[in-house]
Amino acid sequence: MAVIIYAESDNNTYKKSSLEAITYGKDLANKLGTSTIAISMGTVGPQNLGTYGADVHIHCTDNSLSSFNPQTFANTISTLANNNSGDVFVISQTYNGKSIAPLLAVKQDAALVTGIVDIAETEGAFTVKKTAFSSKAIAHVELTANKKVLSIIPNSYKIEENGTEVSTTEQQVGSASANTTIVSTHKETGKIPLTEAELVVSAGRGLKGAENWHMVEDLANALGAATACSKPVSDMEWRPHSEHVGQTGITIKPNLYIAAGISGAIQHLAGVGSSKVICVINTDPEAPFFKAADYGIVGDAFEVLPRLLKRVKEVKGI
């Protein structure tokens, strides 16, 4: 029995959400009275995963793992789990994690729950909490199979640096070659990916046009935040679809969500409602978003955003 955690990396660095998954896995292993095995692939820097709670760290060096393919990655994790009696799997719900988790569940004949937002309850029935109805509800789900695959929403679990003594090995697992080919990859450089951002500045139709987005970007840059937008804004192509948060866009769960000129329709709240602190700036005091906010300013984004920017610069000394 062991808890297996997939430690995903990007640009030679472990993703923050993977470190969250390792802490989650360690806390779960403690509850179950077992140990953790973190599995990494491709090229990654020398970061010590024991810091976050890995008892064993297996790094896979197969050439076939140098670029992402759901099948080869899931195969590798599954093979290592079989070799090391792994039976509970913790995966961070990144885009790649979303593809790996279901494949792994079928390979392992395991129960699968995605969208998990809290540590599992292990006294009595093994139960997890997951988001449902596009963040409008939380479901408590019992996993009745012996093996379990848990997919955790990024930014749901706090990283802890307890410093476990870790034993690290490198292995070639010998997974079959990929069944899809990556033709090209395009990544936004120098920008914080929205799905991983802790702070997000977002704006809607109230900004009146794409040419005014520098106000949003300036504030985001000063804060070290990612930028997002509402559905009408991406529909009108003021901003790329990859920035659209809401029911049919991306669901995010940052620590801070600042929304300027967004009224807060139920479909928008579905994508951002579980943000920890929500600040709403809107000229309309009756905007529904204020009801879901922690802080609100009734005012014109064109006046408020520059004031916020100036103050952020003063506070941060930039």
Binding site: D10, K15, F68, T94, Y95, N96, N179, T180, T181, I182, V183, S184, T185, H186, K187, E188, K191, P193, T195, E196, S242
Partner: peptide, 11 residues
């Protein structure tokens, strides 16, 4: 879609 971008895949 991938985290922070897009990729083109063939199958």
């Amino acid at each position: 879609d991938i985290d922070g971008g897009r990729e083109v895949v063939k199958s």
